[in-house]
Design a protein around this nucleic acid. Structure first.
Lengths: 192, 192
DNA sequence: CGTCTATTTGAATGTACTCAAAAGCGGTGG
DNA sequence: CCACCGCTTTTGAGTACATTCAAATAGACG
């Protein structure tokens, strides 16, 4: 077993046989990204489902003025791709980028079809994994509705205290939907 | 075939046999809701996956001050429940309410298990349906990040021109994350 | 050490808010 | 049929949170 983190990710949601996992493993495509390297840029079609075996990534979209809007930040043990682009075969609207040196394990269409055909339990795995992302995103909407900029910041540092050490603050600011200047001022208020 | 809208919803995403559908149909639980009636209130566990066969519903969450935050508005042909509560068996944090007379077709746990066991293609259907909701919700986050109150309003009326006639404006305002007063002022600017 | 980028600080501004009250609308009963 | 009541929407005035613009400081990297 070469990738225990991925195996564990499956086991967290489904009862997967070792055999099924071991039949999948040789089909995985590995990819390493340097810090700041892109996995995809908007307009490209993503051909894989990327699992972060090690590292830190984020995606962002550009608005019509070219402004950057970070929507998701993910690290070791999570998936970060664009399931719309992958499943529809359409160009992605996201830029997806590593912000720390990253190793990905990627599943392409053939492998996805193989997995779900031979072991239908994988279909359930993806249903649950996507469901989890969906619930997270709904919480993100609720936070944007119900929390002030300062409260969103505090919620983030509460849940991910080390994140501010791992990626530039202006990306955190974008993720929180505030300006870097405001983030700086908020942080000033919270250290004494 | 009693519920062609539901049948079509399945067919939109998967290649479903008529037989599979017809075996499901008698197991559906129907429920009608009057205008303004609740399907569930927060704190309750939802025991079904509710499909809107006819009508209009929305969900909302309360913040710590009791403020209402509408997160989703759905009508005929869509699902609106709480998959977290349903699958985890935990109390929901949502209030889900009909805003027009509504007829629901509901799938309970036994039926869900039956469907996915006898016809594994249903597992794929739910993966795709949840994926769709997830993508919508990501777009919602992006809109909150990148659009002004006025732009969010315009985007909504563009996509759903009749919505303002179907539910109170203060719910639309909540969904857009603006105050009813602001919605009123925005609307004033856009009629002449 | 020097350059480039990120973060911080200051001052002025603006978008959407709160508070307050009036007007509009719909249903009910006299 | 009209009058009244409760709720929703509109309007007005003042306010606040986070913004923009601008510039200084700090930090990272070659």
């Amino acid at each position: 077993m070469k990738y225990p983190i991925l195996y564990q990710a499956f086991k967290n949601y489904i009862n997967l046989s070792t055999e099924a996992y071991l039949n999948l493993e040789p089909k995985l495509v590995t990819k390493t990204l340097d810090k700041n390297e892109y996995l995809i840029r908007d307009g490209q079609v993503i051909r894989h489902l990327p699992f972060i075996n090690e590292g830190l990534m984020a995606n962002y979209r550009l608005d019509e003025n070219g402004g950057v809007h970070v929507l998701q930040i993910r690290w070791t043990g999570w998936w970060l791709g664009d399931i719309y682009s992958f499943f529809a075969g359409k160009p992605s609207s996201f830029n997806i980028r590593a912000y720390q040196p990253t190793e990905l394990l990627m599943i392409n269409h053939d492998t996805f079809d193989f997995m779900t055909r031979e072991y239908p339990i994988f279909e359930r795995y993806y249903r649950i994994a996507i469901q989890k992302s969906y619930i997270n995103t709904l919480n993100q909407v609720f936070n944007l509705h119900s929390l002030s900029a300062e409260e969103r910041y505090l919620e983030l540092v509460q849940n991910y205290p080390t994140l501010l050490d791992d990626i530039p603050h202006y990306l955190i600011a974008s993720y929180l939907n505030i300006r870097p200047q405001s983030l700086s001022r908020i942080r000033k208020n919270h250290k004494k």
